[in-house]
Each structure stands twice: as C-alpha cells, then as structure tokens.
Amino acid sequence: MVYGAQSGHIGGSMSSTEILAVLYGRIMRHDPKRPGWVERDRFIMSKGHCTPVQYATLAESGYFPVDELSTFRKKGTRLQGHSVLGKPEGVENSAGALGMGLSFGLGIRLGMRLSNIDAHVYVLMGDGEQDEGQVWEAAMAASHHRVDRLVAIIDRNGIQNDDFTAATMRTEPLDEKYRAFGWEVRAGIDGHNLEAVEEALAWARDVRGKPALVIFDTVKGKGVSFMENNPNFHGAAPSAEQFARAMEELA
C-alpha cells in the first residue's frame, strides 16, 4: 500500500500489526456485515497516520474488499492518508492531528453508558502521542467519571517523527503516570507475541470500575531488518529496491 502510494506511515503500522489483528480477530465484539450495529465494540485509531495497518485489518476482517487497498492515498479513493470517520465503514473516528482519540473514545463510552450499551471502546495511541496535553486531560476525565470498558492501548515503539521518543520528549514512566491518574495498567508486554497480546487485551477488557491501559513494547518497522528501529521509516515509503527486499524478508 505505502509502496504503491509512494507515501504513508509504515513504521508505526508494522509495530501495531499484531495488536490490531488480535483486537479484530479475538477480542472485539463486531460484525463486518453490520458496521452500524449499535452494540458493537468501537476501535478508535488515535494515531491516525497508521491507516495502512487499520485499512489492512478492516479489509482482512471483511469490511471491504482487499483489492481496494491498492487505492490507498490515490485519487478518488475512500482510503485517505489519515483516518476519516465512516470512510470506509468500520473507521470510527477522524484522526491525524494527534492526541484526540482518547477524548473521542471517552465521549463514546459516556454516550454508551447513557444509552445502556455495555460495549467496549479500544483506543490505540502512539508513545510519541503522549506528548499531547489533551491525552492527559482525557486520562484525568475518564478516571473522574469512573468510566470502564474504556481500554487505552499504547504502541510503545520508542520512535516518533523526527527521532527516538526519549530524545524528543521524555514521557516515561508512562505506567506510573497513568496509575497516578487512576487507571488500571499493564506494561512491558511484548506487542509482537500474539499470545501475550491477547492475554493482556483480554485482561483489560474485563477490568471494571476503572479505565484500563495496556502498554505494549513494540518494534517500529517490525519484520523488515532495515526498517526496524529506524526513525527514517516513520513517514517514508520504501524505494523499489527496498520494497523487493522487504517482501523477501516478510515472505
């Protein structure tokens, strides 16, 4: 997709791949045939630049034809570079500017509570995204309003746009900060181990009385040697040669 479009955010998509696969395959209550089903669990992509993994997961889950993935970022596509609510069905929020997804998910969960809907809201954020002050406003408010069935997920791949997160803005220790904000937290989970991902997300799904957070340790660009942990593959597309090598490594 990213190679075809010659633009897009591949690194943060590859670090989130297992997380989305487990959410849509094992954890979430959803039905691709009924994307408007009001009782469905919602997935909120707060790091809205990681549409490659979001669209691929939705297509593989049956929300739209896999063939359509080749239109990503191209003229006339429904698959814009960053998430747009309802395009295609299954995309639950508009994102791209960082830091808003947890607030949006909090609002959804409050609305569900008022409507007596017991579904869950899963919000995926990046670790670089934790720089945004709005994230902490939402963390505070979720706890204040005693919201549960709200599951925040941090894909802690350690890299943001310009550099490593530790060099850009020190946000650690994230686990202790969220605990201080009143959240149930599990951290240090291997985000590329399918069993570990499923175990942690199932735990978070069952937390009651508080919002829950899982922090996954991941590798940006996971699976392709020259992309792994390389800040140059945050928002850049691979060349023809790099694409061929990557496909060989992933085969």
């Binding site: 929020n93 609002g107 959804i108 609305g111 002050g133 709005q134 939402a138």
Partner: peptide, 18 residues
Amino acid sequence: FGVAEQNMISAAGGLATL
C-alpha cells in the same frame, strides 16, 4: 470536563456518535 476545553470538544464528538 473541568477547565479542559480540548478534551471536552473531542468527547462531545464521541458522545454525538451515539
């Protein structure tokens, strides 16, 4: 939402989806 307008507005959007 306390004195936190940004969170309030994004949460308002989420509430409206219901």
